[in-house]
Write a protein that binds this DNA or RNA. Structure first.
Lengths: 121, 121
DNA sequence: CCGGGTTACGCGGAGCGTAAGAATT
DNA sequence: AATTCTTACGCTCCGCGTAACCCGG
């Protein structure tokens, strides 16, 4: 199970559409579709109901999405601590860091949000 | 960042040797060595000090290992909930599940511990 | 030498984008 | 016909094991 794929699940649950979720995680729509299928197969659970108009999270999906958010939160904390350890060049972090807002979905988005990369669109 | 790789980091920290950690996570020793290098590069941090006699966790490594444990815990909770949802065929889990012991490192180990697979060695 | 970590190399599989298909409105 | 998800296909690259290499006791 990859952290990346859990991010796909959360994005799809929040956007309610493969197309929008794919754009959010910087993936083509078919690639996201396969990614969701893969994790559904891996868990042996149907997480989403595909309807003609929009995608709905199943009951089981709601539980998994909530779990996925917690995994992503911890993973973001890890990356954040790594950044702190790197920039401050200290050996230990005294207090736990708490993220008020979720991190950017990837390093590129992070640079964009910092204005270090200009987007053409 | 993959959950699998975080497991490698924790295993190496606990075993104190690439050879033993590799055996624990069912990987050849060179493969584990590359896996650790990869995450060290990814985070931009040196997590382990390679000495002639044993491997020591660096100060930064201690923080990251602790974070990795939390990510793995949440990931295990997710898998566990998925199993509960699957076997009981219910739509929701009422209370959060708490793991007293860590899960097996992989499904194969799980089957072995259940006696469903006999090991030759 | 020897035990233990790293580098070299070839291979299989996972995951991507593009393009074509299917289904619902 | 339009919109939206899925399947097909070819490609790239990541990650593995084997084997060769390196380096302190």
């Amino acid at each position: 199970m990859s952290v990346r794929r859990l991010n796909h699940v959360v994005a799809l649950a929040e956007e309610g559409s493969f197309a929008r979720a794919a754009e959010r995680v910087h993936l083509s729509q078919p690639a996201l579709s396969r990614s969701i299928q893969a994790i559904e197969d891996e868990l042996g659970l149907r997480l989403f109901d595909r309807a003609a108009r929009g995608v709905a999270v199943t009951q089981a999906g709601k539980t998994i999405v909530e779990r996925a958010r917690r995994v992503l939160f911890e993973a973001n904390c890890l990356v954040r601590d790594a950044e702190l350890l790197k920039t401050h060049e200290i050996g230990e972090v005294q207090s736990a860091s708490v993220l008020i807002r979720p991190r950017s979905c990837c390093p590129i988005c992070w640079w964009v949000s910092r204005g270090c990369i200009r987007t053409s669109g």
